[in-house]
Amino acid sequence: MVLLPQSPTHPTLYDTDFWAWTQTQVKLLQDQQWEHLDLPNLIEEIESLGRQQRQELRNRLSVLIGHLLKWHFQPEQRTRSWVSTIRIQRIDTLDLLDDNPSHKPYLAQIIPRVYVMGLELAIKETDLPPAHFPENCPYALEQILDSKFFSGEPSELLANFER
Rank of each mutant, 00 (worst) to 15 (best):
R78H: 09
L3W: 03
H67L: 10
S84W: 08
R163S: 09
Q6Y: 12
L128N: 05
A159D: 15
I111N: 04
Y115T: 04
Y115I: 03
E162T: 12
L68K: 02
T12W: 00
S147A: 11
S81I: 03
L119G: 00
S62Y: 13
E44F: 02
S48A: 11
A140G: 09
V63L: 15
L61P: 00
R54A: 10
L39Q: 01
Q32Y: 13
Q74C: 11
Q53K: 10
W34Q: 05
N100C: 09
T85A: 10
W19Q: 03
Q77F: 08
Y14Q: 07
L4H: 07
F133M: 10
L128M: 07
S102A: 13
L39I: 15
Q89F: 09
P138Y: 02
Q6G: 08
N100T: 04
Q32E: 11
D92G: 06
Y106D: 12
P138L: 00
L107C: 13
S155N: 02
I144F: 05
S155E: 08
E56A: 14
N41C: 04
A140Q: 06
V116T: 07
L57M: 06
R51K: 11
V83S: 04
L94E: 02
Y115G: 07
Y115H: 10
K104G: 00
W34R: 04
I43A: 01
Y115W: 04
E76T: 13
P8F: 05
D17P: 00
Y14D: 01
P105G: 05
Q33A: 10
L145K: 06
F150P: 01
H72R: 12
D95L: 15
P105E: 00
N59E: 09
P8Y: 12
F150Y: 10
E120H: 14
E135Y: 07
A122F: 04
V63C: 12
